[in-house]
Write a protein that binds this DNA or RNA. Sequence first.
RNA 1: CGGGGCGUAGCUUAGCUUGGUAGAGCGCGUGGUUUGGGACCACGAGGUCGCAGGUUCGAAUCCUGUCGCCCCGACCA
Length: 506
Amino acid sequence: MSQKEENAISPCREEDFPEWYQQVIRAADLAENSEVRGCMVIKPWGWAIWERIQLILDGMFKATGHRNAYFPLFIPLSYLQKEAEHVEGFAKECAVVTHHRLEVRDGKLVPAGELSEPLVVRPTSETIIGAAYARWINSYRDLPILINQWANVVRWEMRPRLFLRTAEFLWQEGHTAHETEQEAWEETVRMLGVYERFARDYLAIPVIKGEKTESERFPGAVRTLCIEAMVQDRKAIQAGTSHFLGQNFAKASGIRFQSREGKLEYAWTTSWGVSTRLVGTLIMTHSDDDGLVLPPRISPSQVVFLPILTKENCRSQVLEYAERLANSLRETYWEGQKISVEFDTRDIGGGNKNWEWIKKGIPIRIEIGPRDLENLSVTLYRRDRPHRKKEAVLIQNLPQRVCEILSEMQQGMLQRAQEFRCKHTHIIENKKDFYDFFTPLNSEKPEIHGGFALAHWNGSVNVETQIKNDLKVTIRCIPFDLIPEPGKCIFTGEPSRGRVLWAKAY
RNA sequence: CGGGGCGUAGCUUAGCUUGGUAGAGCGCGUGGUUUGGGACCACGAGGUCGCAGGUUCGAAUCCUGUCGCCCCGACCA
């Protein structure tokens, strides 16, 4: 690679956003495509980010009264069939296991031992968990059941993209059963709130909470809630969903209980989930043309020490000095947790090493060389500033300064993302402006364009379909936090109860 | 699953039209020179050209099939 290049990632975001995204993943060494179509290998740095997500979310689930459990990977075909809409929604993308043995014939391994009933590799677990709940629940005293599972699921996708849409992906799925409709609804809303907080406070991603329209609803759900984020190419991405399932799955799976009045009633259930897609969302929200940029709270490590060991005569002194500082920083608390520090003494060129960490998005890089040793200082670089911009920090100020910067970065990243979203969210009052907003100037090679549009809609699926066909734009959600403001549908002139959020989506 | 493009070393690729059994850059290894920065020099390792057939004395190159990847649609967290 030439040292003349300005940025580590080529092409840059403006030139080719999808390609830039792939390059960031590669440069940061997060994951790679595997030999199995649509399935990815998550590498240590990528996995560490997912682990952070898991750890924090898991704590939030526990704090809201949930417990973890685990259900089977395989679902009997007949289970899936129990809920009509659900089958229809997932049938096309199910991986199916039909055999349980391999035999050698003519030197080739061939499937043998056909199963009497094929097994579906779970695309989601409502049905098999429903069957368990049907066994577990007899009385209103057994309710609520508040369970989460961390698992992998498989949806046979036609166009996979690392983290955003893979055939196998990792997620958590919460499944709860309640005595009353209201309780289940409250749970649905509560968990959406957990997702919103997590996205905002940890990933530094502002999201819009809302409800899906009927056409975007989860198959089998009564109501689907979601959080929608805007990434840097101004497209929307669904970052999490929470479903109010009513009694649909309870009826399909026979989840019944005897009520306080002694009557046999169906339970009210919910399900909610976020997936490794969050990692993709994180990448597309914050990264720049030098690679990944991680919010300090989600970064596997907050700081990397890069001792400069070029002069033989003071090598051991620098090392010792750096190590002492690193260790003291490791004992420093930021937001109630010890700071995680990497110490990179690998014998590779200093420039290369530095760039590696830039591309990995670590929040703070600290260089320590002979000169710093003399001055009793370190040289500090932060990932949210140009890569050459350095700051000398005296060692007695280091822990405090690092904490300050981490807090600043966490807030700054959220603020930047909010400003970006705000700048590209438009209130649109008529059809022409709407079409203009979502039409690129260059149709051959569309530039980054559009964003979020808030516009009135008459509630008709036909309009949604028309817009989707014309512009590939869909209603992302009916936002919760928008003050209801009656108006006229910009497409039909018919009455509208309020504005909805339109965007092109991942 | 429809339309288009592409598969040559870990990565990016030249060669293919006009068949004569592979070349480069980056990366990697060793040695040296450098050193607050993705440095330089030398030497070296690494490819049966996606796979399977066919045509031919001879195929990376031509033909057929197949698999995979990318882009555009339809579908989706």
